[in-house]
Amino acid sequence: MTYNLTELIKPEAYEVRLTPVTIFGDGDSTIRVIKYSAPMNPHLREFHCSFEDSNICLFTQDAQDNFDWTRQNIILRDTKYTPNTGPTADRSGSKEGFYMYIEASSPRKEGDKARLISPIFSIPPKNPYG
């Protein structure tokens, strides 16, 4: 039996209670812990992701840090406020492409932390024997 839980949007663990229901009534419940996994194209068996998508590959900002990462590209960058911040292009060399950066100048101070948390990726081995 398969059931898709479409409300799961964060790469976190969820506790699910399973209770069989028959014509004789409810059976004994069991609890399972499940984890969200990003949708994957079953034909490609690959997960393609980049910072071009506003969902930033399902990365999340850490709520326990002092400040956040910013998704940016050269074209949309406001040079009035951040003239020397970030690279001159994304990893492919494109000025239109997006990247993630942190503002390290004022009001940052020593010890501040900005954490971007990666989802858990389950990558199958290419070689079935290792």
Rank of each mutant, 00 (worst) to 15 (best):
Y101K: 02
Q64S: 15
A89G: 06
P20R: 06
E7M: 10
I56Q: 04
E12A: 14
Y99E: 00
R45Y: 03
H48N: 09
S122I: 12
S54Q: 12
T2R: 13
E110A: 14
E46V: 07
V33K: 14
I120T: 07
K80Y: 08
P119Q: 01
T30M: 15
N73V: 02
L44D: 08
S37V: 07
I75V: 15
I123Q: 10
K35M: 11
G27L: 12
F121M: 09
F59T: 02
P42Q: 05
V33A: 13
P119T: 00
E52K: 04
R115F: 07
D112E: 07
M100L: 05
S118R: 02
A63N: 15
P107K: 06
K95E: 14
I23G: 15
I9R: 13
A89Q: 02
R91F: 03
D26G: 13
K10M: 08
T19N: 03
P42C: 10
V21E: 10
S118W: 02
K35T: 12
A13R: 12
K10T: 08
G97W: 01
T79R: 09
K35H: 11
P124Q: 09
S29D: 14
R115C: 13
R115A: 13
P125E: 05
D65H: 09
P83V: 01
N41E: 08
V21T: 10
S122N: 12
C49L: 04
S92I: 01
F67W: 14
D26I: 06
A63F: 12
C57M: 09
V16P: 02
I34F: 02
S94V: 00
L5C: 08
N66K: 09
L76N: 13
P39D: 09
D78P: 04
F59L: 08
E7D: 10
Y14M: 05
T22G: 07
S106D: 09
H43W: 06
I102G: 01
N127E: 04
F47P: 00
S50P: 00
A104S: 09
V16E: 05
T2W: 05
R17N: 11
Y101A: 01
R17W: 06
K113G: 05
I31F: 13
N84M: 07
D112Y: 13
F98A: 01
T79A: 07
Y14C: 07
R77Q: 07
D26T: 15
F121Y: 12
D26P: 06
D78W: 03
Q72C: 14
R77G: 03
Q72V: 13
G27V: 05
T2Y: 11
I34C: 13
P124M: 07
P11E: 06
I102A: 00
E7H: 15
G130D: 06
Q61D: 14
F98R: 01
Q72H: 09
N4Q: 14
I31M: 10
F98P: 00
N127Y: 04
S122M: 11
I102P: 00
F67K: 08
S118I: 02
